[in-house]
Computed example of a mutant assay.
Amino acid sequence: MRKVLTLVIISIIFFSCGKTEGVVPSVPVNFRASKTDPRLAALNSAGGAVTISGYGVAGLIIYRQADGSYSAYDRCSSYQPEKLCAVTIDDTGFTVTDPCSGSKFSLADGSPVKAPATRSLRPYTVNVSNFEIFVSN
């Protein structure tokens, strides 16, 4: 009986330990810039997107939606994020591509639009005042 109880306890411990493999790590993000910052020039029109290095896991992507609102994502691909592959903005301006796997993601909502990725890009919160853009989590 003691062996069975020990086996049950070990099984519960083994199967209850969740792995966070395959998840883009959560790191503190606090980006702030003036809307007139030259790095953000592409955001002056709907559909514009920019990349910002030095924030998040692999940098940031900020995208201006058709309705004038903004979205921000971590550049780290959600497919095998341990490889730290930074997605790049496609010529169309509507998607980004993971150069390591070929996965594509929509800039509208960060969702995968081409396999093998099945998870969305990690989103961040964007707040805009009259003169500044704030990206945080």
Rank of each mutant, 00 (worst) to 15 (best):
V128A: 08
S71R: 13
R2D: 12
S34H: 13
S77M: 05
D98F: 03
R64E: 04
S129Y: 08
P99N: 04
L40W: 14
A66R: 11
R2K: 10
Y70E: 14
C76D: 11
G48R: 04
V96N: 04
A42P: 02
I61W: 15
L40C: 12
T6Q: 08
S53Y: 11
R64Q: 05
P38D: 07
K104F: 03
K114H: 10
A46W: 11
K104M: 06
A108G: 03
T88Y: 12
P123F: 08
V29R: 07
V29G: 02
Q65N: 15
E82I: 10
T92C: 12
S53E: 15
F105C: 10
S106G: 04
K114E: 14
I10L: 03
P81E: 10
C100I: 08
K35L: 15
F105D: 11
A66Y: 14
L60Y: 15
Y79R: 09
F134A: 09
P112Q: 03
P123Q: 06
Y55I: 06
D37E: 07
S26R: 14
V24F: 15
A49I: 04
V128Y: 11
A115W: 06
N137Y: 13
I12V: 02
K35D: 12
I9V: 03
T125H: 02
P25T: 04
N30I: 02
P81H: 07
S129M: 05
T20F: 13
D98S: 06
N30V: 02
G110I: 06
S120I: 07
T125C: 00
T92N: 14
S101F: 01
Q80P: 00
K104R: 06
A42S: 12
I62G: 05
C100R: 03
P123Y: 09
S103Y: 01
L40I: 13
S78A: 15
S136V: 08
L5V: 01
V126I: 02
A66T: 11
G59H: 07
P116R: 04
V23D: 10
V128H: 06
V50N: 04
D37P: 00
I62R: 10
N137L: 09
I12M: 01
R64H: 02
S129T: 07
V29N: 04
D37I: 04
S106F: 05
Y79A: 12
L5Y: 03
A86T: 06
V126N: 01
N30R: 05
N127P: 00
V128L: 08
R119D: 14
A33E: 05
V29P: 00
T51Y: 15
N30E: 07
A117R: 03
G102T: 04
I133F: 04
F14P: 01
L43W: 11
V24Y: 15
R119M: 15
L107W: 02
K83R: 11
Y63R: 09
S45P: 05
V4G: 00
S69F: 13
I13N: 03
V113T: 13
I62D: 10
D98I: 05
D67W: 14
L7T: 01
R122P: 01
V27Q: 13
E132I: 02
C76P: 00
S26N: 13
M1N: 02
S34E: 14
Y63E: 14
T51H: 14
T51A: 15
F131L: 10
T20I: 13
I61C: 10
V87F: 07
